[in-house]
Amino acid sequence: MSDQTTLADALAQCREDQVRECIKAMVASGASATEIITECNRGMAALGERFQRGECFIPELMFGGMVMKSIMTELAPLLGQAEAQRAIGKVVIGSVQHDVHDIGKDIVIMMLRGVGFEVVDLGVDVPPQRFVEAIAEHQPDVVGMSVLLTTCFKSVVNTMDEIKKSGHRDRVRVMVGGAAASELLKEHAGCDFYGKTAVDGVDFACSVVGAAR
């Protein structure tokens, strides 16, 4: 391993062995779990930038996210209560009713967690009422809806209608993404943002809470 390679670089380049070596070296030199995670988050952000520039694609985002997830699991016991990171904001997210696809949603979640959001994952096939309950319970800054199927278009509209009826609409910003989503759908349903890619969604969430990605 080259001395110049940082943990963030190694993660952004999807070099798993180097990631492991960097973490070992950081632990040996007395770095705290929080410092390691901060460095990983920088790597995930850089990976997102590579994706936006068309230098890498979903497999890299997926790989980075999975490596990050395993690092977080390993470091969890080392993170003291006081050391636990303060989230930069909260997102409630799910695939809309009758849509059971989760890959796109899960990538957004990994990226959001990577930049420091607390994410409440409602899973797939989420009924409109469940979104409303989660908004009331968790009071998120942002709500994300994922929709892969054009036939589930109506579920996006119904979810927005339920959120409006519940009186929570003004408290949250709502983004929609996924293969079936479009500007047309966003306008039609009354969402705040349409994200073509996972990184667009993360950028939007960051802008809502006034954080830089």
């Binding site: 999807c14 798993e16 497999p59 997926m62 790989f63 999975m66 890959i103």
Partner: peptide, 8 residues
């Protein structure tokens, strides 16, 4: 997902 990991 699994195949993405395997490619690496």
């Amino acid at each position: 997902r699994g195949l993405c990991m395997d490619m690496f």
